[in-house]
Design a binder for these strands. Structure first.
Length: 547
RNA sequence: UGAGCUAUGGUGUAACGGUAGCACUACAGAUUUUGGUUCUGUCUGUUAAGGUUCGAAUCCUUAUAGCUCAACCA
């Protein structure tokens, strides 16, 4: 391994396992439940699991943890696969916990045969009541001592649909006084007469997480089963089941879930935002979902870079969304095509300009030597940003003001001579002179100006719609605030504005990335209508100008 | 108040008993036909108290704080 980069604790474990000869190669898995869309937190787990088998010999499976038919849908399966591929990873095998329902059923019988599982007729309330509390032991179920034969018969009956939902469960027989609540005779199987997105109506009993996850890991010979910290208490049960079942000893390792400020990443909360129409869907560009970030204009590279930078550790964290934005700018700066778009225009008339149809050349991307150039048309009537003019400028104002000169990007230097005002005294137009000898690339004017402005030709610019996104929430950690998290939504998270764009933007495609000069990074929305193009603002440019 | 996990600048993450480093942010300056980029520099940190040691962010003890565990969810 390279010496420069320090290893995270999971990589350290793997290196030791490899060095010590415990394994020759490793197998990891990414195990989403298909009950929602993947978000930035999942991206971290994906980069970890798939990244590990890029650095070390081995492979990574994609396994859907689909053991709860009532919340899971094929739509989610499809979106998850799309997101992983888009992020740039390939799984070795596409697998489903539901593939193992038959095997899992046999495992359950094995446990019953060993006297380590029993069928319980208690209601869920009774089971909860007998569970005890973290400080008090639980009580044994009255059904705990059924014979192996009776348990086998009843469990088979459960499988054959002889009993209604909720009437019986299969439980592991461990210890109702165990210090770890999860070891107090955990439920292994429950009855659900529900349609499953893959197995249809073949089954009416479904294994619980604890009786599916570790067993699936084992079946696939997963060497390193990586999950988040809240599963630490499950590890004891994970190991217990593997030991009693005498199957391949996969091992579970836990890392801290990554949190980001000004958003939420619980599937329950994201689902609420979608269902209650606070956003337009799972892929709303304000959502922290992979599909939202994609639609917003984030690149896979920038997301992978982000995951890399925040690393993997075991302590609680709230990562500043500013780092995600930095990663976006970092990549986009290298790849985005530069275009000029004026948002809030003020009209300029060049009083001494008489040319017509003049074409100027400008670079598509100064960061990319192979980026090429394009033509932009100059003319007598132009638009610049209203912000780029001030009637009474402060001392360090480099932009346009009465009597002041600026360069128009890739064009000429102009001087503001006169303001035209309406009856209310608002400036509606600026009358300027241009300096013909100051043309970009062949400037012999000898004039030096501090400011360079973006502009468009008023006579051929096209109008586009631009969606300016801001953070979804007003507070850093909506979940920790008093009351409903939705009270903390940012009412200004979406603003629609009109942009006056240079005509070349007509050719924009969905996967193109643009920098609108001096403004930010933008991309064409995937549902942009052809008659009025819609662009999403990914992130603004850093603004170093202190007023 | 049972048990478990975790504590390093504003944020994230390294340092594996031997110089507290990197990145983001912020702030200065240089460069710049984007107040962008790039480059240079600056500020800011080991939760606390004891102990072991020549030497502790690291090992031990205690305290404190945060998170997790009593779903027929995952």
């Amino acid at each position: 391994m390279s010496e420069e980069r320090s290893l995270n604790f999971i990589e350290e474990i793997i290196e030791e396992d490899l060095k010590g000869g415990k394994y020759k190669s490793i197998i990891t898995r990414f195990p989403p439940e298909p009950n929602g869309y993947l978000h930035i937190g999942h991206a971290s787990s994906i980069c970890l699991n798939f990244g590990l088998t890029k650095t070390y010999p081995g492979y990574t499976n994609l396994r859907f943890d689909d053991t709860n038919p009532v919340t899971e849908e094929t739509e989610y399966v499809d979106s998850i696969k799309e997101d992983i591929k888009w992020l740039g990873f390939e799984w070795k095998n596409e697998l489903y916990a539901s593939d193992y329902f038959g095997e899992l059923y046999q495992f359950a019988h094995k446990l019953i045969d060993k006297g380590l599982a029993y069928v319980d007729d208690s209601t869920s309330e009774d089971i909860a009541a007998m569970k005890g509390t973290p400080t008090e032991p639980g009580k044994n179920s009255p059904y705990r001592e059924r014979t192996i034969e009776e348990n086998k018969r009843l469990f088979e009956g459960m499988k054959n649909g002889e009993f209604p939902d909720g009437s019986k469960t299969l439980r592991a027989k461990i210890d109702m006084a165990h210090i770890n609540m999860l070891m107090r005779d955990p439920i292994l199987y429950r009855i659900k007469h529900a349609h499953h997105h893959r197995t249809g109506d073949d089954w009416c009993i479904y294994p619980m997480y604890d009786f599916a996850h570790g067993q699936s890991d084992s079946i696939e010979n997963i060497t390193h089963s990586i999950c988040t910290m809240e599963f630490i208490p499950h590890r004891e049960l994970y190991d217990w089941l593997i030991e009693k079942l005498e199957i391949f000893p996969s091992h579970q390792y836990e890392f801290a879930r990554r949190n980001i400020n000004y958003t939420v990443t619980s599937k329950r909360k994201l689902l609420q935002l979608v269902n209650e129409k606070y956003v337009e869907g799972w892929d709303d560009p304000r959502m922290p979902t992979i599909s939202g970030l994609r639609r917003r204009g984030y690149t896979p590279e920038s997301i992978r870079d982000f995951c890399d930078r925040i690393g993997i550790a075991k302590r609680d964290n709230i990562v500043d969304v500013g780092l995600l934005e930095f990663c976006a700018r970092e990549h986009l700066n290298k790849v985005a095509l530069r275009r000029m778009v004026v948002f809030d225009p003020i009209r300029i008339t060049l009083t001494n300009y008489e040319g017509g149809g003049e074409q100027l050349q400008t670079e598509n991307n100064p960061e990319d030597v192979n980026g090429g150039v394009r033509n932009i048309s100059f003319g007598k009537h132009l638009f610049i940003e209203r912000d780029d003019f001030m009637q009474n400028p402060p001392k360090k104002y480099f932009r346009l003001a009465p009597g002041q000169m600026v360069r128009l990007k890739s064009a000429y230097i102009i001087r503001c001579d006169e303001m035209v005002k309406d009856d209310a005294g608002n400036v509606t137009e600026l009358l300027c002179t241009y300096f013909p000898e100051s043309k970009s690339g062949s400037d012999t004017s000898g004039i030096h100006v501090k400011g360079t402005l973006h502009w468009v030709n008023a006579d051929d610019s096209i109008e586009v719609v631009v969606r300016e996104y801001d953070r979804l929430f007003r507070v850093e950690d909506p979940s920790s605030e008093e009351g409903d998290f939705k009270e903390y939504l940012n009412p200004g998270s979406l603003k629609l504005v009109t942009g006056h764009a240079e005509p070349s933007l007509k050719n924009a495609a969905v996967n193109d990335r643009f920098q609108f000069l001096r403004k930010g990074y933008y991309c064409l929305d995937k549902e942009s209508p052809s008659d009025k193009m819609v662009f999403n603002r990914t992130v603004t440019l850093k603004d170093g100008w202190k007023k």
